[in-house]
């Protein structure tokens, strides 16, 4: 994704987007099936380190990105900790019931979300959308029709954001930016949504016509401005990920932080 935040290009940026996607996606599945909190803690440490060291962003920005996810970590784990089921009671007060089992389950859940967040952020922050779609066309044989549609849509987002601000101002001066009650709020949503949607539908249609007018058809074989290939950095990423996964798994058995091996 494109942010207006400066960053250095590191080897993570040089990896092939499709390869990165194929390496990251299975991790989401694997993480769901890991029930040993020790493994997840180790992986979190390992991948956080990878992210912090090689994302190419300034540390303060990286930490800022983490703030919302930390919040999710706390909210998901705390609800499980405070209201979960379990045998060994640590604390009880009215509805709140903290048990050993629920505590570890909560922490486990928290780390799971954190790992998801790390993979998501790592992908989003080190991948340019344009290259992602060029790579998907070249490596994954994605049809250009879909790739360019997505790219055109990405262009529309900042324009829509600007328009949202304008609509807000326009409604404000007509004293129509506030509404009371449920029906009023519904009406208000319509006031924002209709101009924004009608504008973007028309713009999207015009862009589509303009693209075809520039010779965009599915018939011809096309060449590519950016040639995206597989390279040594994809091997690096694969190796690094294997090492973190394997070492994390081994250390969880050899040097566990908590005695529990399965939170179920």
């Amino acid at each position: 994704m494109r942010w207006n935040i400066e960053y250095k290009e590191t080897w993570l940026h040089q990896t092939n987007p499709t390869a990165k996607l194929l390496l990251f996606l299975p991790m989401f599945v694997v993480i769901v099936f890991v029930h040993n909190p020790n493994v997840l803690i180790n992986w979190t440490i390992g991948f956080t380190a990878l992210f912090m060291l090689f994302s190419g962003y300034r540390m303060k920005h990286v930490l800022l990105f983490f703030v919302p996810f930390l919040f999710i970590f706390i909210s998901t784990s705390s609800s499980m900790i405070l209201f979960g089921k379990g045998e060994t009671t640590w604390f009880r007060l009215g509805l709140i019931h903290i048990t050993e089992e629920s505590f570890y389950r909560g922490v486990h859940l928290g780390f799971r979300t954190l790992l998801f967040a790390i993979f998501g952020l790592m992908f989003a922050l080190t991948t340019k959308p344009v290259l992602l779609f060029y790579s998907l066309m070249q490596q994954a044989k994605l049809k250009p029709k879909y790739a360019y549609s997505f790219l055109a849509a990405i262009r529309l987002l900042p324009i829509m954001l600007e328009e949202f601000q304008t609509v807000h101002q326009a409604l404000k001066v007509r004293r129509a930016a506030k509404a009371k009650g449920f029906r009023g709020k519904l009406e208000l949503m319509k006031r924002y949504a209709i101009p924004l949607l009608s504008q973007s539908i028309r713009r999207a249609q015009r862009i589509a016509v303009a693209m075809e007018a520039k010779g965009f058809t599915s018939e011809r074989t096309r060449t590519f401005y950016y040639e995206v290939t597989l390279g040594k950095y994809d091997v690096y990423l694969f190796v690094v990920m294997c090492v973190i996964v394997a070492v994390g798994y081994y250390m969880a058995g050899a040097l566990p932080y908590v005695a529990i091996k399965d939170v179920r």
Partner: peptide, 14 residues
């Protein structure tokens, strides 16, 4: 074909 709307003829960011 050159269209009217400068914001509705491009599909790429650069």
């Amino acid at each position: 074909y050159v269209f009217q709307d400068p914001d509705a003829q491009f599909c790429m960011p650069y």
